Computed example of a mutant assay.
Amino acid sequence: MATGRAVVRSGRQSCDGRRARVARVAIIGSCITRDLWPILGEAPADLLYISRTSLPSLFARPLADVEVAADPPPGLARHQNNAVRADLRKSSLAALIAHRPTHVIFDFIDERFDLLAARDTLVTHSWELEVSGYLTQPDFSHARIVPRASAECDQLWGEACVELAAFLRQTPLREARIILHESQWAQRYLDRAGQPHDFDQDVMIFDGNLGRLDAHNALLRSYQDRFAALTGASRVRADPRLRMGDVGHRWGLSPFHYVADYYRDIWRQLRDLGL
């Protein structure tokens, strides 16, 4: 659930025992994609993971005057602080090009956070930014929330998606395979005895910030359809019957922390795309 790079072993064996070409994977998304590897015991050759951001924030100007501590402030892990730094400094796109990925996977589960308009730019109003203490700095003194469900946010997202499509075409990323991991917030979850229960429609984003489950799923469908139409991305989507929350998930119970079979289904599809 962080922005960072992990270099670990991978590679697929060919039929004569030789190791096939190793994929270089980049993720712009959330733990629903990053968790594929640890949950299934697999490992990408060289993973760049960009999280806790939004397309409008990715393409906005840096908020350069905010001081981001080298050591994480209380309440944040190092990878969480790195994610906040990347979102404020707008360093993710340069890191993506430098990574030279063979595959770039997008998922939009982190597009549940509001945006924050600060000075002449936008940042992602994530839980990590909220607890970091950075919001007390002068650059945020007159900041205003752009609600995720607002028409303003939708327009900003659509404009950024057009910009992203051009970015993918006009940079070395045009050589990479672009993949959309489509998903939805689960309506139901399994308890520890394997019995199903319904999620509440009101889902906590963080600290009193609620989101309506059906509304966010409608937003995800819109985002995913617009992104696919503009980029021609390959689309992977788990069997809807597997879109089930899991109370025993490594990150806890949430409408986007799924049962293990969900990840197995997505992993099978990604392998078919060359991972």
Rank of each mutant, 00 (worst) to 15 (best):
R12P: 02
G17C: 02
R19F: 09
A20W: 02
A20Q: 15
V25R: 03
S30P: 09
I32A: 07
T33E: 11
W37F: 15
L40R: 10
L48V: 08
Y49T: 12
S51D: 10
S54L: 08
L55T: 05
L63H: 13
V66G: 04
E67P: 01
E67A: 14
P72C: 12
P72K: 09
P74T: 06
R78Q: 15
A83S: 15
L93E: 05
I97S: 07
R100L: 02
P101W: 05
I105M: 07
D107S: 06
D107I: 02
F108K: 03
I109V: 15
D110M: 07
V131A: 09
A149C: 00
C153D: 00
V162D: 15
V162T: 14
A166N: 13
F167G: 11
I178K: 03
A186K: 04
R188M: 08
R188F: 08
L190D: 07
R192L: 14
R192T: 12
A193M: 11
P196F: 09
D200Q: 05
Q201L: 12
V203C: 08
D207P: 00
G208E: 11
L210A: 11
L210R: 10
D214P: 10
D214I: 06
A215V: 08
Q224L: 07
R226F: 11
L230Y: 07
A233V: 01
R235V: 09
R235N: 01
L242I: 04
W251M: 13
G252C: 07
Y262G: 02
R271K: 13
